[in-house]
Simulated scan of single mutants.
Amino acid sequence: MVDTSRADRVGEFRGVAGPYWSLRPVCGGTEWEAAPEHVRPADPGERLHANNARCNARSRGDVL
């Protein structure tokens, strides 16, 4: 999912928290909440970029 209110930040959908959706960075990190009207599905290029970033983080031994 892409949060358009945060410079098109890509995250995985984690659930609903009241009126907001919880998203988590693909490479790990702190979840954030976004209004559903500011969230859209990631296009194939955005998904590829996020998955590559995740693989690179994993190869460096970063915590996911």
Rank of each mutant, 00 (worst) to 15 (best):
M1I: 03
M1A: 13
D3R: 02
S5F: 05
S5T: 04
S5Y: 04
R6K: 15
R6M: 14
R6H: 12
R6T: 06
R6E: 12
D8S: 14
D8A: 13
R9G: 00
R9C: 01
R9A: 09
E12K: 06
F13Q: 11
R14G: 03
R14H: 08
G15F: 01
V16K: 15
V16R: 15
V16L: 13
V16E: 15
A17I: 09
A17W: 03
A17T: 07
G18W: 04
P19Y: 06
P19W: 03
Y20P: 00
Y20N: 10
S22Y: 02
P25W: 04
P25I: 08
V26C: 00
C27M: 10
G28I: 11
G29P: 03
G29A: 07
G29K: 02
G29W: 05
T30D: 10
T30L: 12
E31V: 12
E31A: 12
W32A: 03
W32Q: 05
W32K: 02
W32P: 00
A34N: 02
A34T: 04
A34Y: 00
A35F: 09
P36T: 09
E37L: 11
E37N: 10
E37D: 14
H38E: 13
H38T: 15
V39H: 01
V39W: 00
V39N: 01
R40C: 13
R40S: 11
P41S: 09
A42M: 08
A42T: 04
A42N: 05
A42D: 01
D43C: 15
D43A: 15
D43H: 14
D43Q: 13
D43L: 15
G45T: 12
E46T: 05
E46F: 05
R47N: 00
L48N: 07
L48G: 08
H49T: 14
A50H: 05
A50Y: 04
N51I: 09
R54S: 11
C55W: 07
N56W: 08
R58L: 15
S59I: 07
S59Q: 11
R60G: 08
R60Q: 13
G61I: 07
G61T: 05
D62I: 08
D62S: 11
V63N: 02
L64H: 06
L64V: 11
